[in-house]
Design a protein around this nucleic acid. Sequence first.
DNA 1: TTCAATTATGAAAACGTTACCGAAAACGTT
DNA 2: AACGTTTTCGGTAACGTTTTCATAATTGAA
Lengths: 339, 339
Amino acid sequence: MKNLNIKDIAKLAGVGVSTVSRVINQHTDVKDETRKHVQEVIEKYNYIPNNSARNLKRNESMDVGILIKGMYNPFFARMIQSIEKRLSFAGYSAIIHYNIEGNKDIDAANEFILEKKLKGVICLGGDFDQLTDQEIQRLGVPFILASTEIPEKLNRELFSSVIIDNEKAAHDAVTYLFEMGHKKIGLITTGIEDKSVGTIRTQGYLRALKEHHIEKRENYFDVGAYTFDTGYEAMTRLLGKADDITAVFAISDVMAIGAAKAIYESGKRIPEDISIIGFDDIDYAEFYNPPLTTVHQPVEEIAESTADIMIGILDDELKHQHIVFDTEIIKRNSIKFLG
Amino acid sequence: MKNLNIKDIAKLAGVGVSTVSRVINQHTDVKDETRKHVQEVIEKYNYIPNNSARNLKRNESMDVGILIKGMYNPFFARMIQSIEKRLSFAGYSAIIHYNIEGNKDIDAANEFILEKKLKGVICLGGDFDQLTDQEIQRLGVPFILASTEIPEKLNRELFSSVIIDNEKAAHDAVTYLFEMGHKKIGLITTGIEDKSVGTIRTQGYLRALKEHHIEKRENYFDVGAYTFDTGYEAMTRLLGKADDITAVFAISDVMAIGAAKAIYESGKRIPEDISIIGFDDIDYAEFYNPPLTTVHQPVEEIAESTADIMIGILDDELKHQHIVFDTEIIKRNSIKFLG
DNA sequence: TTCAATTATGAAAACGTTACCGAAAACGTT
DNA sequence: AACGTTTTCGGTAACGTTTTCATAATTGAA
C-alpha cells in the first residue's frame, strides 16, 4: 500500500493537481464547492503531502534549529522543551544539536543551517563576542540568541535576543548578601577573562563589592563549568584558600548545589556556617535542603518569547527584537542573617 | 550568490552530473583521478548537496524522531542529549517531540513518522500496552522503545527495546529497606491500575512485601506524576494517613526529593525519622542533602545503546534486539539502619 | 444577447537530486 | 591487430510538489 501522492488525489477527486495543491495550501482562488470536495478526498485517503518535494520546490524547510552550548544543563533542557512545544504548535519542527566543542559557535550555526536547510536558528548560550554583522547576514535566516551575552557592536536589526541583565542580577545577588550582613563573599564563577555570561556575572559581583566598599580578594574566587562536580571542586578549593568566607555566590544553581556538598563534607552547615546563593532557579532549587536562595530567571517566559519571536519573524509578522527579562531574588533558607 | 547545485559542479569540474553524484555518495565506480578532481571542486566552491532533493529522490530522510512522554523530566532530558550526540555523529538528525497528551502513544508516533518522513522512531517512556504487531508493522520504520514497559504479547522481531527490569529493581529497593530494618514502608508511585512503569514498580514493591511477610496496607500508598510538586503532595498526604511509616520508596528521584521537602516541613528529619529511597539516580540525587540512596539506572548506557541500535538497523548491520540493563542500589545517606 | 471583466481551473515547467541504461574508454588476451 | 571484458562515465527519466500561464467558466453591465 504505497503512499498516495497529489496526482492520485487529483485523479480521485476528479480535478487537476494544481487545484489540490491550492486546497492544501489554503489559497483563496478555488470555489468553495470544489475545495470541500477535495478536502473530503484528502481526509478519506489520509493523504499527507510529501515534505521533501514541497521543500525542494519552495527551497526551504519547516525546521528550525536549536543549538545548545555545553554539556547537559537542566536550565537549557527546560528551555528546549518549552521552545519545542511552541514551535511544534505553529507547524515547525525543532532540530536540536548540542555544540559541545569550542569557541566557534557561529561556525557551528552556519554549518547547521546549510546542512539542514533550516528556516531559522536559536542559540542557547554560547559565546558570540567575535561575531560580526557580516557573519549574521551570511547566515541568511532569522537568528536568535537566547540566554547569552550580546556583543554591543552588533547591528540589532540583524538578529533577536532574549536575555536577562546578568550584570545587574549578579550585582543584586551579592548586594542581598551584603544586606544580610555578609562581607566575606566567595564567588564560584565560570570565567573571568572572556565576554561570557560567567564573566559578566563576575563583573556584577565586583561592582557590588566596590559599591559596598568591600575589598576584592583573589583567593575568594574559583572557577567551575556549570556542573555539580565542578561546583563541588571549586568549593573544595575555596574552602582551602579562603576559610574565613561567610557566604558564597555561585553563578548557577547546579554549581551552588555542588558547592553545598563540599561545604557539608567539610563539616560546616548551611546557612549556619556558610550562606549560599545560586543563579537560575531551576526547579531543583526550591526542593533542595535547605531550599536554595537564588536569582530567578523566568525560563518559561524566556523560552516562549524566543519561540514566539522566531515564529513571528518566519510568518512575516514581526521584526527582530531584543527582550530582556527581569530577574528576581527568591529568598529561601540558604542564607543566614548576620545582623 | 545563489547556492550551487550539482549541475554547476559538474560543469565546473568538466564531468557529468552522475559522476558528481557518484563522488558525493562514495560509489566505487569512478576513477581515482576524477574523484579527486571532483572532490577538489566541491571543496573549493563549498558545495553542499540539497537534502530535500536527495530525500525526495530516495524517498526518505536522515531524520530520526525522538518522542518523549510526559512533562519535563531530568532523566529523559539527559537521555535525549546522549542519543542526539550519537545520532548526529552517525550523520542523522534528531527531531524531538514531546507527546504531552494522553494514551494514544502509538498514534502520536505514527503521525510523527508520516509527517516528517522519519527514518526511525525512538520512544522515551509511554504506555504501549495496547500496541499490536500490526500497528508496529504499519509504522514501516525501525521502532525502539526505551525506558518503558514492553508488552509481552508483541513479536519481538518487530521492534527493539532497551530497558531495565523495573519489577526487580523496585523489589530490590524495598528489600534493601527491609534489610535495613524497615517494615513500615510507604510507597509513592504513579499508578496502580495500568501497565505503566509505575505500576510495575508498584508490583515489585508488593512482591518484596509479601516475600518478607509484611502486610500490605492501602494507606501506605500514594500517587504522584514524576514531578517535584506531586511528590511533595503525595508525601504530605502520606504523612497524614500513615504517620507510623519509617521509610518511603519513591519510584522516581524527583518525587523522592519532593517528598523529602514534605518530610522536612512536617518537622521530621531524613534519615533519622524517616528513611527514603528514590529511583533513577539522576545527578541531583548524589548532590542532595542528605545524599539520596536510590536505584541507579545507567542512563548513559541506555541512551547509547538506543542510539547504536537505531544506527545499526538503519545501516543494515543489526537486527532488532532487546537489551535489559542491570540496576544497582546506590547506598548514600538517606536511609537509617534500624537494627 | 453580447462583450468585457472576473473567477476557477488544468497543463506543464521547474526544483536538485539519484539511478538506470547504454556507450566510451581502458585493459588483457590471443 | 582484433576481440571480449571490465571499468568509467554521461544522458535522462523519474521523485512529488508549487507556480506560472493560458484557458474555460462564470458573472455583470450594456
